[in-house]
């Protein structure tokens, strides 16, 4: 589609703009831009392990990207991905406690996945209900829910299902059946078949958003609330549904982390996936399929920020944060330019 092509070209232009700016900054900091690029590339694709780690960082972003993109369709801005993923991860860990007698790995994984999805979904649904019934602004309520989720997850971790053997803030280790096996090729990076499932999930959500009546209703409400209402689409139900789905998606991060990586819930495991998810969705411009390259890019940057610190003299961790920031800025600034053009023509 022409319009889609245009949008993705714009996103790519934004990324290139940001990257150029970042490399200029590196140059002035005394590091060869060429080397920075090389390090970034090698740190993400250099070996099976590196690539696996990049995918490991990108995987939660697929989900948190969806958690932002789905409600955007319905006109809502979900800032609560971080809280929703904490609750989802906690639920996945809790599933291991509740279902410790489940022997079949398939059943165990499905059980924990359902737990994570529903728990995250409910965490998202609460702001959805508040918005639908009381008109509370979802940005405020989702931020509040983030705080509550942080508190709740610490409490549960430290007092309810804490690992008594560990002096760290982490829950009990899950039974073997709950562990997802990583690929041998990734040589220790905690990522396996799950990555294909997640990519398929993005495609399914895309197809569903585009072709289902529910998806249509979300779109109609997001685009024109009044028209939707006039033609019999309930915005309340659309909002609640969108937020439940969003929360559920973020909650599935629990599967990536708890079943795939740590096999337990550890306080502070998230590299701000919920918030980076906002940038991912922004870069994808609301296009669901766009989340895949966009999440991969941020995975590369996250992986690269540590490697840049290690491999170069001048680019410290802070500078690699600046690079990330500039790339986001490049994308947003391009949007700003667009907006100004529109304002001028109006």
């Amino acid at each position: 589609m022409n319009r889609m092509m245009k949008a993705s070209l714009k996103s790519i232009a934004g990324v290139l703009l940001g990257l150029t700016l970042a490399l200029i900054v590196c140059h002035f900091a005394g590091e060869s831009p060429w080397k920075v690029l090389k390090v970034l590339f090698q740190s993400s694709f250099g070996s099976g392990y590196d690539f696996g780690m990049t995918l490991f960082y990108a995987a939660p972003l697929f989900l948190t990207g969806l958690a932002v993109s789905i409600p955007i369709r319905a006109g809502l801005f979900n800032v609560g991905g971080e809280g929703q993923l904490l609750i989802g991860a906690l639920a996945a860990a809790y599933a291991g406690v509740v279902g410790k007698n489940i022997a079949s790995p398939v059943a165990a994984v499905l059980f924990a996945t359902a737990f994570a999805f529903v728990a995250g979904g409910i965490w998202g649904l609460i702001p959805g209900i508040l918005k639908a019934k009381r008109g509370s602004h979802e940005v405020i309520t989702t931020i509040m829910m983030n705080f509550i989720a942080a508190g709740l997850s610490s409490y549960v971790t430290l007092y309810l299902i804490k690992d008594p053997e560990s002096s760290q803030a982490e829950t009990m280790l899950l039974p073997e059946a709950f562990h997802l096996k990583p690929f041998e090729k990734f040589a220790g990076a905690p990522m396996g078949w799950l990555i294909f499932v997640l990519i398929a999930l993005v495609f399914v959500i895309h197809y569903w958003m585009w072709n289902s009546v529910r998806g249509y209703e979300l779109k109609a409400v997001g685009e024109n609330e009044k028209a939707a209402e006039t033609y019999g689409i309930s915005k309340q139900s659309a909002w609640m549904f969108a937020m439940f789905m969003a929360g559920g998606m973020a909650g599935l991060v629990g599967v990536v982390e708890v079943l795939g990586n740590a096999h337990r819930f550890k306080l502070g495991f998230s590299a701000d996936y919920g918030f980076v998810g906002i940038a991912v969705a922004l870069l994808a411009r609301g296009n669901i399929l766009g989340i895949i390259p966009s999440a991969l890019l941020f995975g590369i940057l996250q992986k690269g920020s540590a490697s840049l610190d290690l491999e170069t003299d001048k680019v410290t961790r802070d500078l690699s944060y600046i690079i990330q920031g500039l790339i986001i800025l490049g994308v947003v600034a391009e949007g700003l330019f667009e907006w100004r053009k529109k304002a001028k023509n109006a």
């Binding site: 392990y49 220790g188 590299a271 490697s307 610190d309 410290t316």
Partner: peptide, 15 residues
């Protein structure tokens, strides 16, 4: 090196 997140320790030590 300073780790950017709690999942980076392993790769940094490994490097």
């Amino acid at each position: 090196v300073e780790a950017p997140d709690n999942s980076a320790y392993e790769s940094l030590q490994r490097a």
